[in-house]
Amino acid sequence: MSQVSEPAHAPTSTGIEHKKLIMWLFLASDCMFFGTLISTHLLYRKLYPTGFTDAEGHQRFIQNLFNIELTSFSTFILLMSSFLMALAVSAMHKGQIKSFRRNVLGVIFFGLIFLGCQVFEFTHFFHQGLTIQNSVFGSTFYVLTGTHGTHVAIGILWLILLYFYSFTGKLGGHVGALDVEVAGLYWHFVDIVWIIIFTAVYLVEYLGPSGFWGTGLPLTK
């Protein structure tokens, strides 16, 4: 007897579980979502390469605003959380629920550190005079990284719920492993989006004396 409408057990036409397929479809769609956000940021960087004007009317360079050590640290943290997530999924496949809990706690912890870094960064930039209202750069930067941060926060919430759900004893077997794997796919995606943001938003600002975007244009003080 087959249970056609019950996603986890039913044999599917392709052999791919419904939940995994729909998550990949969502991620394909999310590529366009973050593509739009990132390109909004990049095209304004291209149009207005030299930075922004703060509340006192001073011209500010983005290179002087950014703190590459902090961002590198949070990038590293997010990468390692991705690694722990892969281990958590692996543990679920092996039926090692305790190992799953340990790893997923690590993911949550690292995710929270990343969010903490972002909160620190936002506060720091705000005190440096960058607001969402005073420049296009402020708008695109805060909305892009903030949207990514929201994705991270949703991921953390999801993993916390999975963590506590695992104590009910209902998270197990093939269905449980699949549920964790799907949450993991989401988490990894949030991580790879940050890989792009790290390069396209942060690193390129350090290239050359006036920054990559200032290339070929007269530098005004």
């Binding site: 366009m32 979502f33 739009t36």
Partner: peptide
């Protein structure tokens, strides 16, 4: 997703004073 982001940006312009499409602050 393109319209979703565009709507978010427009909403930020209107509700929180962002400058995505605000011509007087360099928005396009």
């Amino acid at each position: 997703p393109a319209i979703t982001v565009a709507l978010i940006e427009l909403m930020f312009d209107r509700q929180f004073g962002a400058n995505f499409f605000n011509p007087s602050a360099g928005g396009q």
